[in-house]
Computed example of a mutant assay.
Amino acid sequence: MSAQGKTKHPSKLSAGMLQNLKKEHRKISMLTCYDYSFANIANQSDIDILLVGDSGIMTLFGYPDTTYGTIELMEMMTKAVVTGAPDKFIIADMPFLSHRKGIHHALDSAERLIKCGAQAVKIEGLSGHKDVIAYLIESGIPVMGHLGLTPQSVHATGYKVQGRNTDDFQAIIADAMMLQELGVFAMVLECVPTELTEKITQMLDIPVIGIGAGNASDGQVLVLQDMLGMTQNIKPKFVRHYLNGFHTIQTALNHYHQDVKNASYPDATESYHLRNNQVQGNTATKIKQLMEQLS
């Protein structure tokens, strides 16, 4: 514990430091985060990386998939997380099609996220935008890759495990090797067989962060709300609930509701009162004046 009684957490990571964690066989923890309140809690935790994921388009705003994401929404979430977690390494997702409209549009989108305080951006897929990834990296913007299930392509591929047949298995390996060659500092592998994760993790020098990809990767990422059990009746196979958040919060809301209904909240200790020396000898007029001053 520090002199202030707070736990000391590891120094802020950077894109360049992650490769050392891989070399030292130290697992990397990453969570999505979209708002100030959760970011502030995460900032005082041991979590290594916060990802401002475009999954926030669904978990925060209720859209059916991430294709509804815009750069403006990503900027808003990134600013909130950066403000709440100044001590964390923060990566922001490039939203749907922002990297498919040419180099200059992609550079502008990445620049906006970096100027919001993100230290890196994440881009889904590879085919058709190799030049964009290379250009951003050459421009000094750290890029994280993302292969396997890429949610922005949901209308083309659906939500299903990728890399289960020979061609797809080999194609994902080839894309992973190409991403490393282009200069990405790390990559996410989503919803692929653990055997494929193990092969890619062994072949690459850069860290591989898995989600629904088994335990052979260099680290793991989960959606914060999934990990906290805040979604009811939705639990992908790879998600582990570390809290029954839905029930816990629902119970607290109902408890508050009942306390209001039966007038047990607020009680005297949770209410403000006039001091005795302010009340004694005062007329109704003076009390009224005092109340006006307090309002």
Rank of each mutant, 00 (worst) to 15 (best):
K235F: 03
L204E: 01
Q225N: 11
C191Q: 09
Q258Y: 09
G219H: 01
D218F: 00
E270G: 06
G229C: 00
T201F: 06
D267Q: 10
E195D: 13
F246H: 14
V223L: 03
V239W: 00
N277A: 10
D218M: 03
T248A: 15
Q225P: 00
E190H: 00
S271V: 11
I206D: 02
D205C: 09
A263W: 06
I211D: 03
L243S: 11
D205K: 09
G210R: 00
D267G: 13
L224R: 04
L224E: 02
A213W: 01
M227R: 01
A213H: 02
L182H: 05
Q280D: 10
N277E: 12
Y272F: 15
I206M: 14
Q180Y: 05
T251Y: 13
K288A: 11
G210Y: 07
E198Y: 08
A216H: 14
A216I: 04
M178N: 12
T248I: 00
F185G: 00
E198R: 14
A284F: 10
I209R: 06
G210V: 05
Y265P: 07
R240S: 02
T194I: 05
A186Y: 07
G212V: 00
L179Q: 14
E270P: 02
Y242G: 01
V221C: 04
T201G: 07
N282R: 15
N277L: 11
V223R: 01
T231E: 02
Q202L: 11
T197K: 01
T251V: 03
T285M: 10
Q225C: 07
T197Q: 03
G210L: 08
V239I: 12
H255P: 03
G229T: 00
T201C: 07
V221D: 03
I206A: 07
D259R: 14
A213M: 04
L182G: 02
I249Q: 10
A268T: 14
E198M: 10
N244A: 12
A263Y: 14
S264M: 04
G245T: 07
Q250N: 09
K199Q: 12
A186I: 06
A186T: 03
K235S: 02
C191D: 06
K199H: 08
Y265A: 12
L228I: 00
I287N: 06
Q250G: 05
I206W: 08
H255W: 11
Q280K: 11
Q280H: 07
Y265C: 07
N244C: 05
H255K: 12
T194E: 15
M227S: 10
A268G: 04
